[in-house]
Amino acid sequence: MANIYKLDILSPEGSVFSGNVKQATFPTMSGLITILAGHTALVTNLSQGDIEVEPETGEKRNITISGGFLEVSENMVSVVADFAVRSEDINDELILKAKQYADEQRKKKENVNSEMAERELQKAIMALKVLEHNKLKRKSKGVKY
């Protein structure tokens, strides 16, 4: 069978999809593109959206990504996918906290109580962030199998 190719969708946490496919459609910056076997070598950015995969066997499936890169070479297609939700304001808040924390530490090195409190605060912020992220992920990751 010449009309299939190998597709790998990779994320930092591991492989999301790996196997032979007939075709797949990717959301790029300039619109959707469908890659069939024997496509010319290509590297491009992916935008937020669904990757529509049609495997060799089995049903079609959609994988939602929040961005990434597509690389096509010799019947091998790999996607470096990004599922993370980068919220700018959460980042900024965390940086601010880290900076404040460092400053405070510098000022009062021996005050154990404040340090403990700060640590708790950090933990709480982190937990909040993870919670928020998971919520968004669940919402955006409406994977249909």
């Binding site: 790029t28 910056m29 300039s30 010319t40 070598a41 290509l42 590297v43 491009t44 950015n45 890169f69 690389e71 096509v72 070479s73 010799e74």
Partner: peptide
């Protein structure tokens, strides 16, 4: 190995 086509351009891909 082999030349690739970069879309929209190699600079933009690299920046991202």
């Amino acid at each position: 190995k082999g030349d690739h086509v970069f879309e929209p351009s190699s600079k933009e891909v690299l920046d991202k």
